[in-house]
Nucleic acid binder design. Structure first.
Length: 726
RNA sequence: GGGCGCUUAGCUCAGUGGUUAGAGCAUUCCGUUUACACCGGAGGGGUCGGGGGUUCGAAUCCCUCAGCGCCCACCA
């Protein structure tokens, strides 16, 4: 009797994972054909959201691994050709930020390093982390196909990403634009709108005399070049001023000539209803200047320092210059009043919280509206199912108001943008297969073409993940269609399961790029889970010090207990406050499974596995088996509806409070009576095996360990590939 | 300014029209029955945020009010 004492996950988990991995059944290629399955060519595929290879597995990953493993194991047991494809993400900006922090601690700086040297160091760092994370994913019991694992920097993946870029370029969807972007001074890169966040800040609001007007500004340091004064066309206060009218006035560094502009973007209620514009450093101002074709001048450089246009203030940082400029204006009598405690929203870098300085910079942009349009249509036609449903509305709302996507990042860690840019005229073209474009002479002005030093926004590569992972490293299929075999077999994938948080960053972009490149949406169902919070319901963060390390929980309670604790009571889309007490409770449940199984195994003496008895005459045993059938049916329905939180709870409840508390107790006398002994043995074994099957997707380790020791007919190599009960 | 959620037992949450509203944890009482004390048995505890409506019937559908949270957006 190998099952003795309390259940000890440490004795079991690594051993069992090895058994599975060695069995080869993580790969759909090795799965036995299930003849019972009615569906033809039935496959189930799910692509793992590529984890960032820059740290350790966190609680959110633990949830991803659990939910996706449940889906995978369920379908595999049902007889589907099941593929769960794992992957890792180089996570461009995020990883570079992590690495820069490391450099800072060591007293180094990326700006003092050669790009190649920095790239190599981050690559080593990433590959090291990649190995760790792969080990940690195994710890979670993930039954993914490691033989198909992909990394976003695999040469084959990069090739596909380049192919997409080329097609987008040729279709006129990728363009080089001199537009306003979000510039992080600390990280020295542009960021998409999604990579910035709004922060409330209290500043002073300065009312400055600008010729006959009074303008209100929180940023006097940007005002040096302001030569356009804008008001609403129907503002009666300024009806006397005409569009294009020139006004001479005294300004910070001497007399200037201002031009009157009328634009409806002006809020008549705010301040004085008049403002001057700084198109280089403000998104609204940029729009106005574009509309009226106005001059744009850079005032602040990319390090946050004032340029020569600022005269005596040149070279000063914003923080330093602001008060000095105001002092000068006051001396000139140009400050009307200063409003203290002016609360407003400013954009900050989502990683370092430093203020975003809007800048005009030439970048690669992707036109999004033409990509979004067919996706909107497909969503409205119900081509993709959202779980929970309200994400459908959220996605549509975003897609319908989409803006162009800046693709360029000024960081070394990422996929280099395959483009060349003329250093003289700025003419840019992609540099890929087309030989003509590889020449170093600008076809526009004859200048020298230089390689684009920028890299892609990391989401540009992960946005292609479902088709890229299935196409990469694949030989074409036997029919010679030129289509990768895995792509043909497994695309579109069945489910995309990820965090609701990254619906725009990732899910929406996958739909757009996937549909554009393959004519099909990359997945049929989107399952979005919520955040894993700490016990107080707060978001986990390193700075708060409330991060729960899943590996520690595994060490204390076992993987199975952690997994089911993450599932039961956790509805899709809703965040879960992780209470360690609950995990402890499920550790007790694991022990209950262990002991219930032990009881059944201890009482099998004299039972012939090959020749089960007839049960017709035995009402009590038959009744229990009928109830089991009902549970099996209910469970399958819930699993198909992705209601794992109910399915898990139902099985939990059945095993503990029906099977153990009632059936086992009542079977004790029945086992002693020779007339009912065999039938009772049969019933107990039947219920145990069925329960283990139902529990397996949720708690794979303990159920497999027990299965390995059961004396049953037609036993499979492992429970993982047993037939799901029907 | 727009959008999306949430409000059910002390706590964390299920439950979307149909018998006395559920689970886990916590709590009270009892129990050393040879699978398990990481256990078993019994119990207490909710006018389902307020108000109105639809219905034979509402936690569930509609309207409204209040509180909480999140997301999006260019108010100088």
């Amino acid at each position: 009797m190998e099952i003795s004492g309390p259940y000890d996950p440490k004795q079991v988990e690594d051993k069992i994972y090895k058994l599975w991995e060695d069995s080869g059944f993580f790969s759909p290629d090795n799965l036995p054909n299930n003849s019972k399955l009615k569906i033809k060519n039935s496959k189930f595929s799910i692509i793992m959201p590529p984890a960032n290879a820059n740290g350790n597995l966190h609680a959110g990953h633990a949830l991803v691994m659990t939910i996706e493993d449940i889906m995978t194991r369920y379908k595999r047991m049902q007889g589907f050709k099941t593929l769960w494809l794992p992957g890792l993400d180089h996570a461009g900006f995020e990883t570079q930020v992590v690495y820069e922090k490391k450099l800072e601690k060591e007293g180094r700086s990326r700006f003092k390093m050669a790009p190649e040297e920095l790239y190599k160091e981050i690559m080593d760092f990433t590959l090291e982390n990649k190995k760790n994370i792969e080990g940690q994913i195994r710890k979670m019991g993930a039954s993914c196909d490691w033989s198909r694992e992909k990394f976003t920097l695999d040469p084959e993946i990069i090739k596909i990403v380049y192919g997409t870029f080329e097609k987008l370029f040729n279709d006129g969807l990728v363009y080089r634009g001199k537009k306003i972007i979000n510039w992080c001074i600390k990280h020295q890169t542009s960021l998409s709108d999604l990579e910035t966040k709004d922060t409330e800040k209290t500043d002073k609001l300065y009312y400055l005399k600008y010729g006959p007007f009074t303008i209100a500004t929180a940023r006097p340091e940007t005002k040096f070049g302001d030569k356009y004064v804008v008001m609403h066309p129907s503002d009666p206060r300024y009806a006397n001023f005409l569009q294009g009218q020139k006004i001479s006035l005294e300004w910070i560094n001497g007399p200037i000539e201002a031009t009157v502009i009328k634009d409806e973007a002006i809020d008549m209620e705010f301040g004085t209803g008049v403002m001057t514009i700084t198109p280089w450093h403000d998104a609204v101002d940029f729009e106005i200047s574009q509309k009226h074709n106005l001059d744009k001048q850079q005032i602040i450089d990319f390090y946050g320092k004032l340029l020569p246009v600022a005269g005596e203030f040149t070279g000063m940082k914003i923080s330093e210059a602001r008060e000095k400029i105001i002092a000068k204006l006051q001396a000139k009598g140009l400050v009307e009043k200063i409003e203290e405690n002016y609360k407003h929203i400013v954009k900050t870098c989502y990683k370092c919280d430093s203020l975003i300085e809007p800048q005009i910079k030439e970048q690669w942009f992707l036109k999004m509206a033409p990509l979004a349009k067919p996706v909107i249509k497909a969503i409205k036609a119900g081509k993709v199912k959202f779980i929970p449903e309200h994400y459908k509305k959220i996605s549509l709302h975003w897609l319908e108001n989409i803006i162009d996507w800046p693709l360029s990042r000024q960081i070394v860690w990422g996929i280099p943008i395959p483009a060349k840019i003329c250093e003289k005229c700025g003419f840019a073209t992609i540099a890929l297969s087309d030989v003509k474009r590889l020449t170093d002479m600008c076809e526009n002005c004859g200048g020298v073409m230089q390689k684009d030093p920028d890299t892609f926004d990391t989401w540009f590569s992960s946005g292609q993940w479902p088709f890229a992972t299935l196409m990469a490293g694949q030989t074409a299929d036997a029919q010679g269609s030129g289509v990768a075999k895995d792509f043909k077999t497994f695309y579109p994938t069945d489910v995309m399961e990820t965090a609701g948080e990254i619906i725009f960053f990732w899910v929406a972009r996958m739909m757009m790029l996937g549909l554009y490149m393959t004519k099909k949406l990359p997945f049929k169902t989107v399952y979005l889970h919520g955040l894993v919070l700490d016990i107080k319901g707060q978001k986990m963060s390193k700075s708060k010090g409330n991060v729960i390390n899943p590996l520690e929980l595994i060490d204390k309670y076992g993987t199975d207990a952690l997994r089911i604790a993450l599932i039961i009571g956790n509805t899709p889309g809703t965040s879960l406050a992780l209470d360690e007490n609950r995990i402890k409770g499920y550790k007790n449940f694991a022990n209950k499974i262990w002991n219930g199984s032990k009881f059944v195994l201890m009482n099998l003496d004299g039972y012939d596995v090959a020749n089960p008895p007839l049960l017709k005459a035995l009402a009590w045993q038959g009744k229990n088996l009928k109830e089991l059938k009902i549970l099996v049916k209910e469970t399958a329905k819930l699993m198909d509806e992705y209601k794992f939180y109910v399915a898990g709870e139902k099985i939990y409840h059945y095993f503990w409070h029906t099977f153990c508390d009632k059936i086992i107790e009542e079977s004790k006398p029945a086992l002693l009576d020779p007339k009912t002994r065999l039938a009772t043995q049969y019933m107990l074994l039947e219920i145990l095996v069925t329960s283990l099957k139902l529990l397996h997707p949720f708690m794979p380790f303990i159920t497999e360990e027990i299965y390995q020791q059961l004396p049953i007919k037609d036993k499979k190599t492992c429970l993982m590939v047993e037939n799901w009960p029907v």
